[in-house]
Every structure is written in C-alpha cells, then in structure tokens.
Design a protein around this nucleic acid. Structure first.
Lengths: 222, 222
DNA sequence: GTCTATAGTTGGATAGAC
DNA sequence: GTCTATCCAACTATAGAC
C-alpha cells in the first residue's frame, strides 16, 4: 500500500517468497502467491524483479546469507574434540529440525536449479556456502581442541555436508527424530576418530567469536 | 496407433514418462509430454490413468521395482569385508553415475511427494525400498565375509542410504566424480571398521544368487 | 481404443489508469 | 510506486466423433 523504496520492497518480497515457499513448496511460490503474501498487487512484484527467475534467485541468495549468518553463533568453548563435535553437530541438527519447511525448500531449490539452465548457479552457490561453512567449522574445532585431521580438511567438509544432507533427507521423509540424531552422533564419533593432536603448534588462542566465521555449517543447501 | 490391451499401454506410458522425466525433469513430465513421447494422443493417457497423480505414482513404483531388480545382480564372491564392501559400493556408484537423470528424478519425486498430500506415500515407499535393499546387502556381506556388525544392521542400513544420498546429491551439483568415489571409498572403509568376525557361527554357505534378494542397495529413492 | 476439439484453470508478463 | 485489467501460454481433464 505504502510507497517504499525499491530496495526495501525487494526485501519484503523476498521474505514473503521465503514464507510461501517454505510453507507450501517451491511450486506454490508463484508471483501471484508472493504478491498476496506480501500484501501487494501483482504488478509490484514485476516492478521490483525482472521476472520470476530473478525472484527465485534472490530467495536462494537470502537463504545462503542467512545460513552463513547463523553460522557465526559461537558454540561452547574449550572442550575435547569429541564433545565439541557433538555440540556443533547437535546445534546444526536443531536448526534443521526446527525449520522443516526451509530444509525441504533447500532441496527443492537444488533440484529445480539442476533442471533449469536459467537457474544455473543456484545449486552450486548453495553447495559452496555449505562447504565454506563446514570448512570454517572444522578450522574452529581445530583451534578450540588443538587438533588436526588425518585427511584433508576439504575432504572432511564435503563428507559433513553429504552426511548431514543424507540424514536430513531421510528425516524429512520418515520424521524419525531419534534415528536422525543417533545417526549424526555416530557421525560425530567417526569424525573424532579422524582427529589427531596438533603436533608442533600448541593450542592457538581462540580468536574473538566474530572473527570465527562459522560455528554451524549450512546444510540448508543441497 | 495400434490397439493395445490397457495393461500394455500402461507399461508403455510409464516407460515414456520415465524417459521424459529423467531427461527433462519431473515438471516436464506433463500428460501431454508423456503422450507425445509415447506417440499416442492426449486422450489415451487419460484413458489408461485416472489422472496425472496415478501416472506419477505408477512411475515411482516402476523405479523402485527396477532398483530392486538391479539389486539381484551378484557381486564377486568370497573376499574379505573390506574388498567386498568396496566392490558393492562401487557397483552401486556406477549405477548412479550412469543414470544421472534418473538419480535426479528420484530426488525430485521425493520432494514432490513430501509437498503434495495426494502423493503421500511415494517418498516413504522410495525410502523403504532403499532400506530393504541396504539391509539385504548387509546380510549378504555378513554371510559372504563371515562377519557381524558392532551396531544393529538397521542402523547401518539407514546410514548407508543417507551417505550415498548425500554424496550423490553433491555429485549431481558439482559433477566431481573423483570426490564422489573418494568419499564413498572412505565410507566403505568406515563400514569395514564396524565389522567383527562372526563369533559362534562359522561362515554360512552362500545361498543361490537369486535367493539373495539384493546386492546393490537402491539409492534412487530420497 | 483412439482420435480431435474444447472446456476450464492457472500463472507469467505487460499496459495503462491513478 | 501502485493498482486494475488484460493478454497469452500451458496444462489437466472431459466430451463425443470415428
């Protein structure tokens, strides 16, 4: 109703799009539905976004940013690898469990992106976000617990993303919370077995929380 | 063109639907596109299937059956757990790698099913198929290598499905064959660490191949 | 059983008044 | 900037001729 600067209007519409898409699925996030959710008329959306693809892309970017933002929250410090990984994984899991719709939307965005050339890049961006977050988390754990890994950090990061995605997907289907958390705990234990005390360097002092660029790897992306 | 019994016509249309959906995505598998692919007219499809949902459901069932059928193929026998698991996982991976479209379709079916009440059950059926195949594979490995597991077989099965799904999804996005196979090999190694020699019972003689109801777990489902 | 024709929806996108 | 009105395309589904 009110006249807003385009930038703000865009934010509002992106939020509306996220609401609709998380709740009712990516298919339901039509231009019309988004306009209705935001309480504006159809024309407004087309005034702010060139076309539907641009809106979808903006929505995907918003998710990624959001995940990276969440990733800054600091987990409990100073503990052994085992419990540190446990906590990190469980925080991550809580975020997923409490946002079923968003998690499902993330997979919908991935598959949609993989099928439509005009959305090429969205899925890759999601994955890059996830991997960066996972790598940063690992770096954090390394410093906090004074360890390194017996395999390259990037390899572990990829595994984290894959395993969390896999268990999330299974949980989306059967809703078995117990099985999900059990699986993830087992995985944390496995990760622990890949850690070895950092040889030469003693435990590096922890940087201030906000210079650690993650805590919870983004798993919203594919 | 020709007059076929309904049952055969259905098979033909399901095949056509699989072709279209694997190639162009689940969205592209419209009644019209399927009819065109099968070389029949629009009305024929509606004569064979009550509505589009029934067609989609039939398509999903066909995938599951197909996966279970593939799972009967016998892997190389008589080896240690490590190499046995290695081979099983690599066979599984080859099947995925060579059917990118079908694999992607599987995830599309899952998310679609999770969003549409009228397709409720499809995703669960996919997952049950995967799990049954994984459990059967584990049972096979147990007999072939004379081992049992330090955690319940069902838990391992769920983990297998999750991990394979996770790595598959990552591969669909970035196409990194090397990373995928590396990750899966690492996982096979991990599984090996969960195996212990079967204590009391000596190695049970292998049943005939076709009584072993799997070899490759279905990972097509979500 | 198979075809054409058409009804009835839905959704993307634009034009033009205010 | 925002609204209404409208166009156009694609799709599901059905009716009825052959």
């Amino acid at each position: 109703m009110n006249r807003l600067p385009v930038a703000e209007r865009r934010e509002q519409l992106i939020t509306a799009a996220l609401t609709v898409a998380s709740r009712d699925g990516i298919e339901a996030a039509t231009v019309r539905a988004v306009a209705a959710e935001a309480g504006v008329s159809l024309g407004v959306v087309h005034y702010c976004f060139q076309d539907k693809d641009e809106l979808l892309r903006a929505m995907a970017d918003a998710i990624t940013e959001q995940n990276l933002a969440v990733a800054i929250s600091t987990p409990p410090l100073g503990a052994d690898v085992q419990s540190l990984l446990q906590v990190v994984i469980e925080n991550l899991w809580r975020g997923i469990r409490e946002n079923r719709g968003a998690q499902l939307l993330s997979y919908e965005l991935t598959t949609t992106s993989l099928r439509h050339p005009e959305l090429r890049g969205v899925a890759v961006a999601q994955y890059e976000g996830s991997n960066r977050a996972a790598v940063a988390t690992l770096a954090y754990v390394e410093r906090a617990a004074g360890v390194t890994w017996v395999v390259p950090r990037e390899v572990i990061a990829r595994t984290i993303v894959a395993v969390v995605d896999g268990f999330s997907l299974a949980w989306l289907v059967d809703g078995d919370d117990e099985a999900a958390i059990r699986g993830l705990r087992g995985f944390a234990k496995f990760l622990t077995s890949l850690a070895v005390p950092a040889g030469d360097v003693s435990v590096t002092p922890l940087p201030a929380p906000d210079t650690v660029d993650t805590a919870e790897p983004d798993v919203t992306s594919a």
